[in-house]
Design a protein around this nucleic acid. Structure first.
Length: 1003
RNA sequence: GGAGCCGUGCCUCAAUGGUCACAGGAGCGGAUUUAUAAUCCGAGAUCUGCUGCGGACACAGCAGGUGGGGGUUCAAGUCCCCCCGGCUCCGCCA
């Protein structure tokens, strides 16, 4: 209690304390947030309130803004990249909602595909082989559902709003039906063909892979030089070679492809030379590489016998190094002169270039490597009773055996190991191979008609559609354009089971599919009713009318295709399966697709930059093919989340900061604050340290709000609000500043510049509010009578600032803004949650143009800085104390003196937090200033004043300290038993109805 | 190989071509018991050159200084070119 009294041994006075007459901040808004404990409670409250439904209801009739969610893959807990992704989307949805749009958000999940199937395989083990397909699918479904549930819980935990009870799932029956419908759309419109082609093949997962499913990683391969002996007449190349033993040398890093070697490719325009080695053999290699090859193959001292163009080597024949096969000399302009020998061994079954070259020369592309990567020797090229040692081995095991076989036969001229980047399966990270197999393709060169009837290709229309979309950042457009321009046909088939079946009937006679729209419709309906499993469970006879006959060959025997669709096809049709089909979205989406009417909604896709080759890409292709236009109007891309070492955090690696761990220890709000703090268009760094930073900023913001709320205690807006015209100048200034801030923040939300919102709010709270306005206001808030106009003026502004700020931060500080909302002074008709409110309107905060007011005050802030410096100087001289113990002398000149004098003393003292201020003109008031500062100081100022417009000096305040407000004045008096109370405080006490307390009767 | 992003104090970072380059954190110095698990104030850019001094250190002042170097401009952290460093994406056939 009263310490000094008891220390003096005087009995404690029961008289009321002067301090108790101050109006100190009072609020139930806790200083300590306890986010990990309190956030879940608030989530539960929102659920019971039905907040998302309420938002939808509130949005009815407003213009629609459609952010269509790209589905994350449902096979694990979320990582920071997910948190960034969903956090940004949530900022968009919330800010658009508060900006007056109806912004529904239907989250989605990508459920089919290899990673889940593999996991389920691992779990089931041998059992899988005995299980019927539908049972395995059921297990996959359950696995995916488990992670749909987990991720949903986690996304909600970090405060993301959306239709979480009923998200879209690519494995939902309806979605599967739509996916199949989309495939049939492609099929019926003639985009689809089935063909033999080299595709990336994962022998571990036994499936074809799309380009998007391949990642390049380092891999060590054997690097060998192999001799191919010429069997045609060497004199045909150059007379000098007549009768000589001539060979060429190929270089390869995949010895296992040699059994499939059918040709050697030369560049038609390169110079080739015939080199005579020390051994006497003659080798044909590219001139540019001759020296290098001679060294690598230890040819010794070489002699050039002839020089000629590669074109001359076409249709020569060579002997395969270990098979009984003639190898054809072919030409290809993909042969390069920087590595290898200029002679490229060509296996049409195992390379794209090789395949197309093979087609030109009618070579057989049959692949003798099976799905598991086992080589099966071509019986036509192997006449020995014993199969070769590599027969039946997988390609990696076959490599060294083939190398040994070459060595044995003297065909190995050089060898070593090479570490190079090599395609790997993005899911299992095993190296992949090229393998020519029968696959389903969507042709990018499909002829299509534009809206105006002109003829073009699918690829071309896709590129034209890209141009109509806003890409943010802008370079994304170039990126995806290049990808579409150069990509090969889309291989959409996979040899797995967990996905949407390519539900077609193939003619046993000619292998062509039945294309029958009515039949297809029936299968789609079947999927709708029973799910994709129906393809496996329903016998062919039931699915196919008995009278069916092949339109091509008339055959009547059919089989069901067993391949499934690429998962990128699944998610790539979400615009159809979700935007067009979901009752909450379809109406707005159809407005968008028609592109007509007054209010054409925006459709935004917002994902990581990797989706240029993923979801943005596949969605574009499917929508352009089936609807003739891009599925979005706006695409925004986020950079990568990097860990502290600067390594990318990616879906497949799953490294880095765990957002849920942060939410559990610091709060989901902290994760959100981090998301807001980064410029998402660039790569972003995250670490424990940076999260800590956000947590500290959070504390500061929270405390600022707490102080605002505390000082609004007792303020009833309808009763106490002071009209704008009657506000004190300082308070008016703050309103102008708040309007200015609001305008900026609204524009930043509009442009998705969330990090600027973060910065500006941060700065406003710390600099404008905490360090300035709130600090300055303490005197007025604490010591003036609660009902006084001056105090109400301040409260009016504090109230408006808080009302504006809480809305402006609500999209980011989702939990805290809502908590603040509950502690605001009651207002009739207030929404149940801040999230149901709209952003503040700048003109309702302050009616005038803020710019001139801000400019005027700018001058005063320079003065404030100077005064604080002066007080600091004075403190250093040994006098201690706070600003109120100081009296300040300001020396100014000319117009600035006039300007300062136009401000009342009280305002000046309040603004500077000092007890008294004297403003003197350097010239006009020299006498007075000499008195106050001393001749020496005055002369010094006068001589150094040239480059300044003012100087300030602090000295001990004169007068007596008021025990209530702590200002030093000349007019303190006793107020009852309270000693030294200034007249301002006395009248305040009067106004508060507190009579001077009288001493207690003597004991 | 192609495309792009980034580089600002010890750290994290801001800045329509326009004041003296924002702010926070850490550390330093100080104040406050009336936001107190809180708040406020102050000093503070690594370096280079020059001046003050007979000279050195220290100090003070001035000028330059936003990875380095050029350029455009009345004016550049910002626009252009080159270089260095970090990162990402795309491509990568033997």
């Amino acid at each position: 209690m009263n310490k000094s009294a008891s220390q003096n041994g005087v009995p404690m006075s029961p008289a009321p304390e002067l301090k108790a007459t101050l109006t100190l901040p009072q609020t139930a808004f806790a200083m300590k947030a306890n986010l990990p404990q309190n956030e879940p409670l608030r989530l539960a409250r929102w659920t019971s309130l039905g907040l998302y439904e309420k938002l939808r209801k509130a949005g009815r009739g407003r213009p629609v803004y459609l952010l269509h969610d790209g589905p994350p893959y449902a096979n694990g807990p979320i990582h920071l990249g997910h948190a960034l992704n969903k956090g940004l989307k949530d900022f968009v949805v919330k800010s658009k909602t508060m900006a007056g749009f109806d912004a529904p958000y239907v989250p989605g999940y990508d459920c089919h595909g290899l990673p889940i199937e593999i996991k389920v395989d691992e779990k089931l083990g041998h059992k899988k082989l005995e299980m019927p397909v539908p049972a395995v699918l059921e297990a996959c479904r359950a696995y995916a559902q488990k992670y749909v549930g987990l991720q949903t819980e986690q996304f909600e935990r970090i405060g993301c709003f959306g239709r979480w009870e009923t998200p879209y799932k690519t494995m939902a029956r309806g979605y599967e039906a739509r996916t199949l419908e989309a495939f049939y759309g492609f099929l019926e419109k003639g985009f689809v063909y089935r063909g033999l082609k080299p595709v990336y093949w994962c022998i571990h997962d036994r499936t074809a892979l799309a380009e998007a499913e391949v990642e390049y990683e380092n891999h060590t391969s054997p690097s060998i030089y192999v001799r191919y002996r010429l069997t045609s007449d060497p004199a045909a190349i150059a007379p000098a070679l007549a009768g000589r033993q001539v060979s060429t040398i190929v270089w390869t890093t995949t010895p296992w492809t040699l059994p499939a070697s059918l040709a050697v490719a030369f560049h038609p325009d390169f110079d080739y030379v015939a080199l005579e080695a020390e051994s006497g053999e003659v080798y044909l290699v590219a001139a540019a590489l001759a020296e290098q090859v001679a060294a690598a193959c230890r040819l010794g001292h070489t002699k050039q016998l002839a020089r000629f163009k590669g074109a001359l080597l076409e249709r020569l024949t060579f002997q395969h190094p270990f098979l009984e096969r003639s190898i054809l000399g072919v030409l290809g302009d993909y042969v390069t002169a920087d590595t290898g020998t200029g002679a490229v061994h060509t296996a049409p079954a195992h390379g794209a270039d090789d395949f197309y070259t093979g087609q030109r020369y009618s070579l057989d592309p049959t692949c003798r490597v099976d799905a598991g990567g086992h080589i099966h020797v071509d019986p036509a090229a192997w006449h020995l009773a014993q199969p070769p040692a590599f027969d039946g081995l997988n390609v990696w095991k076959a490599n060294p055996i083939i190398v040994a076989m070459l060595e044995e036969r003297g065909a190995l001229l050089g060898g070593g190991q090479l570490e190079h980047s090599y395609p790997h399966c993005w899911r299992c990270h095993h190296p992949v191979i090229f393998r020519a197999t029968e696959q389903w393709f969507i042709s990018l060169e499909t002829p299509v008609k534009r809206a105006d009837g002109s003829e073009t290709t699918f690829r071309q229309v896709a590129i034209e559609e890209i141009d109509k979309v806003i890409w943010d950042p802008a370079w994304g457009k170039e990126r995806i354009t290049n990808m579409i321009a150069t990509r090969p046909d889309w291989c959409i088939s996979r040899q797995r089971i967990w996905g949407v079946p390519i539900a077609v009937f193939l003619c046993e006679g000619c292998n062509l599919p039945i294309v029958d729209a009515a039949l297809n419709r029936g299968i789609v309906d079947l999927f709708e009713r029973e799910g994709a499993e129906a393809w496996h469970t329903t016998p062919l006879e039931v699915l196919l009318p008995a009278a069916a006959a092949c339109a091509h060959c008339g055959g009547t025997a059919f089989r069901k295709e067993t391949d499934i669709l690429d998962v990128w096809f699944d998610s790539g049709v979400s615009w159809l399966a979700v935007c067009e089909s979901d009752p909450d979205l379809s109406q707005a989406y159809s407005l968008f697709q028609k592109g007509e009417g007054r209010e054409v909604p925006e459709v935004l896709y917002l994902e990581g930059g990797d989706q240029h080759r993923g979801w943005f890409h596949s969605s574009l292709l499917t929508s352009v093919a089936l609807r003739g236009r891009a599925p979005y109007s706006h695409v925004a891309t986020a950079g990568w989340t990097l860990d502290e070492q600067g390594r990318a955090m990616s879906k497949s690696l799953g490294n880095g900061v765990d957002p849920i761990d942060i939410a559990n220890r610091m709060g989901g709000e902290i994760v959100r604050l981090w998301v807001a703090s980064v410029d998402f268009r660039e790569d972003t760094a995250a670490s424990e340290n940076l999260m800590q930073r956000c947590a500290e900023l959070y504390k500061k913001l929270r405390n600022t709000f707490r102080f605002l709320l505390g000082n609004l205690h007792g303020f009833v807006p309808a009763r106490d609000r002071v009209p704008e015209a009657e506000l004190l100048p300082l308070d008016r200034y703050m309103l102008a500043r708040t309007r200015d801030l609001t305008e900026k923040i609204l524009a930043w939300y509009e442009a998705f510049e969330f990090h600027r919102v973060y910065q500006a709010v941060n700065e406003f709270a710390i600099v404008d509010l905490s360090a300035f306005y709130l600090d300055v206001l303490k005197d007025r808030m604490y010591t003036f009578a609660p009902t006084s106009t001056a105090r109400r003026s301040a409260q009016t502004v504090l109230w408006q600032v808080t009302e504006a700020l809480v809305r402006l931060v609500a999209p980011i500080l989702t939990f805290t803004a809502d908590e603040i909302w509950e502690h605001l002074p009651a207002v009739e008709g207030r929404e149940a949650s801040v999230h149901l409110a709209l952003f503040p309107k700048p003109e309702e905060i302050f009616s005038g143009d803020p710019a001139p007011i801000l400019a005027e005050w700018q001058k005063l802030f320079a003065l404030r800085d100077e005064v604080f410096r002066a007080i600091e100087d004075w403190r250093k001289e040994g006098s201690v104390g706070k600003g109120l113990e100081a009296s300040v002398t300001i020396v100014a000149s000319g117009d600035f003196t006039q300007f300062l004098r136009s401000i009342s003393k009280d305002r000046m003292q309040e603004f500077l937090n000092v007890s008294s201020v004297f403003v003197g003109d350097l010239y006009a008031d020299s006498g007075e200033l000499r008195n106050l500062l001393g001749d020496q100081a005055y002369d010094l100022i006068k001589s150094t004043f040239a480059n300044r417009s003012f100087r300030a000096f602090a000295s001990r305040a004169i007068g007596t300290k008021c025990n209530r407000c702590w200002r030093y004045t000349h007019d303190t008096a006793n107020y009852g038993i309270w000693q030294n109370v200034c007249t301002r405080c006395q009248s305040a006490l009067c106004e508060m109805g507190i009579a001077p307390p009288q001493p207690e009767a003597e004991k």
